[in-house]
Amino acid sequence: MDFDFSGPHSGAMETFESLVRTEFAPKNTYLNTASNGLLPARTVTALHEAAMLRAEGRPLTSLYEDVEACRAAYARLAGVPVTRVAIGASVAAHTGVIAASLPAGAEVLTAEDDFTSVLNPFHVRGDLKVRAVPLERIAEAVRPDTALVAVSAAQSADGRIADLPALREAARTHGARTYVDFSQSAGWLPMDVDAYDFSASVSFKWLLGPHGGAFLVVPEDFGGLTPVLAGWVAAEQPWDSCYGPVAELAHSARRFDLTHALFTFAGLRRSLDLIEELGVAAVQAHDLALADRFRAGLAALGHEPMPAPGSAIVSVPGLGHRQPELGRADIQVSNRAGNLRAAFHLYNTAADVDRLLDVLSG
């Protein structure tokens, strides 16, 4: 595999390259992280070890320790205290908790065609005013009667990045709260989570974890949320709260936890370790260099991608129909609404970009 890293520090490049070589050996040209990230070797090992604990009837104590290690690692990536991080299984479930907290008639401002998980729970309430505007206009569309603005930091369909600082200021001006889904950016784009009221992310894309894990970040005062999905793990003393109503909810964001998918977090712990070892800034530089290489190659072929500067996701209108052909050539990309979507992450190389361009050139 021909790795092509650029940057001023050769020692850092060697460390990045050696870690990636150790952890990944894709059998194809995999450019589909926006759908699923590849699992590092250390994660696969941890998943196997966790499964063997169950298979052999041994205690699962270490798996609960993995859950808390993941909570702490995500808190570090997000730049917030660990007491603000809740653990669940999906962004949709976290969105549902936020939707349940809003009074009837409240206005929720969203971006047009954003990912369903960050939108649908507000729509199914039936008594909220959900307003959708183009992503580029979302900050200017906040108004005095807007209760909440909900948006993805990076759009799943085309990689466009929301102007979150402008959105934050507009929301503050009008007294609205903010909810940001970092699923398509956590792991390659630095997060300023503390700047927003609520945020969430899945773990199986750019964070390189298995399916079944998600994080929710809430304010220290919980932002008026009610833990409507709370079970025994949401108690201050979980093992003393297995029967009957929970007498005392956790004093931290753990009150919003859902029953933990233990195998998932056993693996995810090692994936998050890798992200931290490499550093989000280094991953971002690597990913964007490849995305820009692809954009330049597309221009040479006469194709114009969707405008998404600074994004690791590149979406090309009119080329989605070529996804099956690319699949037959062992190049994994996505067809999203007729657009060809390629997503570049730490295990990708310049050779991957060039191979995709070569096939597209016919």
Rank of each mutant, 00 (worst) to 15 (best):
G57C: 14
A34D: 05
A50D: 06
G57M: 13
R54W: 12
T43R: 07
K27Q: 05
T33L: 06
R54M: 14
N36A: 11
T45M: 11
G57E: 09
P59S: 11
A41R: 12
A55P: 03
N32S: 13
G57Q: 14
A25R: 12
T61P: 08
A51S: 14
T45H: 12
Y30W: 01
E56H: 10
L31W: 03
A50V: 07
P26T: 02
A46L: 10
L53A: 10
E49K: 15
A41Q: 14
A34C: 08
E49W: 09
N32L: 08
T45R: 15
A41E: 13
G37E: 05
G57F: 13
A55I: 09
L38S: 05
M52W: 11
V44I: 15
L39F: 07
Y30L: 03
A41I: 06
T29I: 05
L47D: 11
K27D: 00
A34R: 10
N32F: 01
G57V: 06
L39I: 04
A34K: 04
E49I: 04
L38F: 01
R54L: 11
P26M: 03
L38R: 07
L60A: 10
L60F: 10
A34P: 00
T29A: 07
P59N: 06
A25P: 02
L60K: 10
R58C: 02
L60C: 10
S35V: 05
N36L: 09
G57P: 10
A51K: 12
P59L: 13
A50C: 12
L60Q: 12
L31K: 00
L38T: 05
A25W: 01
N32V: 00
T33N: 09
A51Y: 07
A34I: 04
G57K: 11
